[in-house]
Design a protein around this nucleic acid. Structure first.
Lengths: 323, 323
DNA sequence: TTGAAAGCGCTAACAT
DNA sequence: ATGTTAGCGCTTTCAA
């Protein structure tokens, strides 16, 4: 900026005024400065600007589990879109379900003085964020609640969705329902399992451990689990899958066996309508989840000081697959 | 930092030394400073650090077209992973195929002094980046080449892949091949169309405009285009689809008609193996594309000064779908 | 081993 | 309408 000022024969402050479109500068000087800026290839250092003005960095941070997962990339896309509308950039980072890494990333983002944080939490304790929150950095949690910190949160009705899914199967006369899930270490899975158990209990169906497969992390494991359950003495007459990866494995195994066992799966997915058999998904609006969270965040950034809110979004049952 | 220094009864420089794990500080002072840091909730301002030291911001920028698209989110995930390994954060932004927006975003990222840029270019002219590149900001382009700028570039062999796809159909005896594409405004589409035409010409098959549908932006349009072509006087006996969204529409329409017309589609996709009919995809390794580009970028950031390279990655034909 | 002072590039506050 | 000076929070330089 000093160089530009010298080149244009004005003071550094005048350059600053021109760069920032401040009023009260002669058109003649504006032109001269702009010419020098162009000639010298000057570009304002946004970091220095932020440092001095103490204002916003025009940056928000997003922490998710895995950017390659469509659920999270949808969230990231919505966040990026909203950020762009607020002339803000988005720093995205994956915690990979590792609370240590999550904490490290959040600290790093805070040290860069982001204007706000959007977090799909991996850890159980976020009390370490309290100083930041008290210093005025808004944080919004989504998909899972924070631990040890009062903050805005946007969740899905996992419990209600699972209840509805199981209820649907019960209504169709099923009493032996195979349940497949990833890991109860994850909040959403615990909620979904809880909802499924509640719905079974409400129907007077006892909880049979042989009909529950945990640790199903991918489609192949899901297929194997389905094969195992179907080979048992009293096989299930329907399956309830607790996430879409599992659902895919279940459908694949059923297709292999030309079996038309009824399936309900949590989470919709892009090509569900082209799957080779009819099934039902517990669906929700990922974009709305993200949008709600991002809107909340930008309201906070704009100065909103009301008590932290928790929003829970509904799920619906939808028929999918080719009949 | 001044507060910490006062609280610990040392100079600000000693605090700096402790924070940065510099040697030559008494253990006693280290402990005192660390205690004060913890008590006051001090967090180093990364912006100020960068400003003074003139060193790296430990940030890279990634510009893609649409974060919600699995192709781009895979790239973003790889970039984020590599960034994490280099203790660097990733700013992600979508240009939405808008050259103006792309330029705006790139300027913004440069003004934040990112250490490097990864760009899937939307525009045709990137000469405005030359000053930045000359000032030492490395830029790597991926999936599409830059315009008016010599820079590292990682591409896919779109032309070769399309040739192979058409050749496969010709070998199977097809002479009337319906070709469906998005828009030739996009580099990759131009390359793919070019490759398809070359393969047709090599087989002595004339280019029949009635067998080419442009402007197919989504599965529904693709389905409609397929229906239209099949209803014509001399319908195609096979389809070559130039991206995976189109392929999905084609498969859907063929399934509706219980038609088993042969299909080759560019781009693999996650659930291709569960599609309701056999087809062939022109596949490539998106992760390798991204990894190659990111590795190149971090080599440049580390100081590599060799002549810019262009890498082209191969494609393969793969059978997909349920038989 | 520790500290004082200067300065990174910019803007706020105050002259002129 | 324009310029001067101080200072954001940190690191670098150099002195003690």
């Amino acid at each position: 900026m000093v160089d530009v000022a010298r080149h244009a024969g004005v003071s550094i402050k005048t350059v600053s005024r021109v760069i920032n479109n401040e009023p009260n500068v002669q058109q003649q000087l504006i032109d001269r400065v702009l010419a020098s800026v162009a000639e010298l290839g000057f570009r304002r250092n946004h970091l220095a600007r932020t440092l001095r003005s103490g204002q916003s960095t025009a940056t928000i941070g997003l922490i998710i589990e895995d950017l390659a997962n469509p659920f999270y990339s949808t969230i990231a896309a919505i966040a990026a879109e909203a950020a762009a509308q607020h002339e803000t950039l988005l720093i995205t980072a994956s915690s990979e379900e590792d609370p240590q890494r999550e904490q490290q990333l959040l600290r790093d983002l805070c040290s860069r003085r982001v204007d706000g944080l959007l977090v799909v939490p991996a850890g159980y304790d976020h009390s370490y964020l309290r100083p930041e929150v008290e210093m005025g950095t808004p944080v919004v949690f989504l998909d899972r609640p924070a631990g040890g910190l009062l903050a805005d949160t946007v969740l899905l009705d996992n419990r209600g969705g699972a209840q509805a899914g199981v209820r649907r199967l019960v209504e169709h006369g099923h009493r032996r329902i195979g349940i497949l899930l990833d890991s109860v270490a994850v909040y959403t899975m615990r909620e979904r399992v809880g909802g499924a158990q509640e719905a079974l209990a409400a129907a007077g169906i006892g909880y049979d451990e042989r009909l529950v497969a945990e640790g199903v992390h991918d489609p192949d494991t899901a297929a194997a689990a389905v094969a195992g359950m179907l080979a048992a003495d009293e096989p299930p007459t329907a399956f309830f899958s607790l996430n879409n990866r599992i659902t895919v494995g279940v459908l694949q195994e059923l297709w292999r066996r030309k079996s038309q066992v009824e399936v309900v799966g949590f989470d919709d997915f892009e090509l569900s309508f082209l799957m080779p058999q009819r099934f039902t998904v517990v669906s929700y609006d990922t974009r709305q989840l993200a949008r709600t969270a991002v809107d909340l965040l930008f309201q906070r950034i704009a100065g909103e000081r009301s008590w932290p809110r928790t929003v829970t979004l509904p799920t619906t049952l939808v028929e999918r697959g080719l009949s």
